[in-house]
Design a binder for these strands. Structure first.
Lengths: 225, 225
DNA sequence: TTTATAATAATAGTAATACTATTATAAATA
DNA sequence: TATTTATAATAGTATTACTATTATTATAAA
């Protein structure tokens, strides 16, 4: 049995639904590969078109510009991750164990699930680590937010905040702690590989240590509230 | 008495020292203003040249490209902040109090010190909040790091990590906690104003609450180690 | 004082980027 | 078969991110 993760995307993110045609799917697939390879700054629709074997204008029929494509991919990732979290913590009752599992899912590099979609989740995870913040660190963040482009991120944050509150109902900053966990799961990873002296894991480069750090950070906070 | 903060900058960051001429100083001054106004993506050397009343090529004589200018400004900011921290915690002996003071300095919006330099520190602080990560979230981060472009950031992180270790010698993640404090002082601020549901301060929008959150996060971690 | 030389500035480009408008082709329906 | 309609390909343009060349000014040696 093949499990198709069909993630319903905000229609304002695209001009034409990329899931609706082969070309659209190729834009997502090769888009992920090319952004991962060149970085978002050097990534252009022209290069992507050459990769796919179509024209620049062909891609512009699907996405208004490359920023929208990045926001689309980020939204897809957050929605996908929330699904993973819901699915993989479904049978866990103890909120503490659930939170630990979530930290694991956030901080562990993803293995691509070739079965499920044309998007390589492993590459996308790495893109989100190094490019993800650029989706919202812009002047248009207010506009984009009004159009609910960041809803998947907020939903995920909200899910985590709820579990934090289950663990410690008196803890005063569940949302901020949730966004801190999410951001730091990625930033500590980026730092570990690129600016190692900003972390305590620069030598060994083990993701498990980031997880240990986050667990320590979160659970001492929750214990003492 | 006028205190001139002369920050010695890495020479590889510029082609000509912008501190060495009026045009150079104008590039920094108006650069900060324009990046703040338009955001880094829409910022161009052409617009900056028009603002100053010089030509595009005139600016290219000082900075190779706009990325280098951003890295310069970020480096300047981190060096300036480290100076502020050293200066303002100089007479404080208790490391706990020093750390509290540092969290304050990181999370509180800066008031421009018009006396000291052509750079508006208040605007620059806001730029670092929304654009600062883009200085290192690039494909060239490795190259840039080899040229020590991020030394001021790392130095600041190191100073904070040392104080953390003074507070709790047994705490296992001083560097990662330091980079977490720095990043979260900024991200929680950005979220509070732009994606408020990612924080617990969306309603009131008070910086003091970010400080309270960070203090809680840090000192419960240190107490329990 | 004149002239060489070096530093700086202004002009005028170019290749690439980020799009858009128009035309052509294929598919679906009347 | 004719006619919409959808999609794709072609060919543009304005802007961006630079660079090369020429002009000007300042400094120093003859």
């Amino acid at each position: 049995m093949k499990l198709q993760v069909q993630i319903e995307m905000n229609e304002a993110l695209f001009l034409r639904n990329p899931e609706s045609s082969e070309l659209g799917k190729n834009i997502l697939k090769h888009g992920v590969q090319l952004i991962h390879k060149t970085g978002f700054e050097a990534f252009t629709f022209k290069k992507l078109a050459e990769d796919i074997g179509t024209t620049e204008a062909g891609i512009y029929r699907y996405f208004e510009n490359k920023h929208k494509l990045l926001v689309y991919l980020a939204a897809w990732y957050w929605a996908w991750l929330e699904f993973q979290i819901i699915f993989q913590t479904n049978n866990i009752k103890d909120p503490t164990k659930r939170l630990k599992k979530i930290i694991n899912l956030l901080a562990k590099s993803v293995e691509d699930d070739e079965q499920t979609s044309h998007i390589n989740e492993s590459l996308l995870h790495q893109i989100i680590i190094s490019e993800g913040s650029k989706a919202y660190l812009t002047k248009q963040v207010g506009e984009d937010n009004k159009q609910h482009f960041f809803k998947p991120y907020k939903d995920l944050c909200s899910v985590i905040a709820c579990i934090i509150s289950e663990c410690s109902p008196k803890y005063k900053y569940p949302k901020s702690l949730a966004s801190t966990i999410i951001e730091m799961a990625h930033f500590q990873n980026f730092f570990m590989y690129n600016l190692p002296s900003l972390t305590d894991f620069g030598k060994s480069k083990e993701e498990s240590k980031i997880i240990a750090f986050l667990n320590d950070l979160v659970f001492t906070s929750l214990k003492n509230s």
